[in-house]
Design a binder for these strands. Structure first.
Lengths: 107, 107
DNA sequence: TTGACCCATAACCGCGTAGTTATGTATCAG
DNA sequence: CTGATACATAACTACGCGGTTATGGGTCAA
């Protein structure tokens, strides 16, 4: 049985799929056609990747006419943040990299 | 040409491999035998996984007599934190989950 | 030195998966 | 209605990868 961590990690392991998700995070809502234009693979391949991302809860789809719009669900990255924090939890200088992260996000 | 993100994500995508890394994070330094005892797979499989983790920079090995000790390099998780922060960077309520994270880590 | 032990490497196998082309299903334009 | 468009699904292929057993190469004990 796949744990939430399994699903997220394996979904984001593939470069093409991660590229699609990145574009959705930066560019906001996108159609399959728009994503296909930059993905470097065929449209069916993109559709499959979107299916995987959807099953992982990383994207949402919205049908409008004959095209489907996809959006990133950034909250779905929470397990990833959780896992990372758990791994660094037992660390001596555990705040080092998180401090950096927050500084970058503050400015 | 695999990017740093590729290496980290694909290295942590496999459950067995992630389990080994988790144990190294919590339990500290471990021998191959100790890791094999809990991995649920054969010793050569564990050695291969450790090789992948090592190439990804996630672990360090130290030879002592006839056994090899492995340690987790938690700093290697930095690209993961970076990537996550970049994905949430364009978020409206971007501090929501990070606040939670810090609260858990503070107490 | 000999044998047991720890680990790494080799060689092989099966399966999952990412890619393709081909086809199906709606939807809009004319 | 007809054809074109947008996307999903089907069917298939190729290859990478995680697993195994078998073996090699050092290291310690006796």
């Amino acid at each position: 049985m796949p744990t939430p961590h399994d699903v997220i990690f394996s979904a984001l392991a593939d470069p093409t799929r991660r590229g699609i998700f990145e574009r959705l995070c930066r560019g906001g809502e996108q159609t399959v056609g728009g994503l296909t234009a930059m993905a470097g693979v065929s449209q069916p391949a993109v559709s499959k990747h979107l299916g995987v991302l959807k099953k992982a809860g990383l994207v949402l789809d919205r049908h409008e006419g004959r095209q489907t719009h996809y959006t990133a669900r950034r909250q779905a990255l929470a397990p990833l943040v959780d896992w990372t924090s758990q791994m660094t939890e037992f660390w001596g200088s555990r705040f080092d990299d998180l401090d950096d992260l927050l500084k970058r996000m503050d400015q």
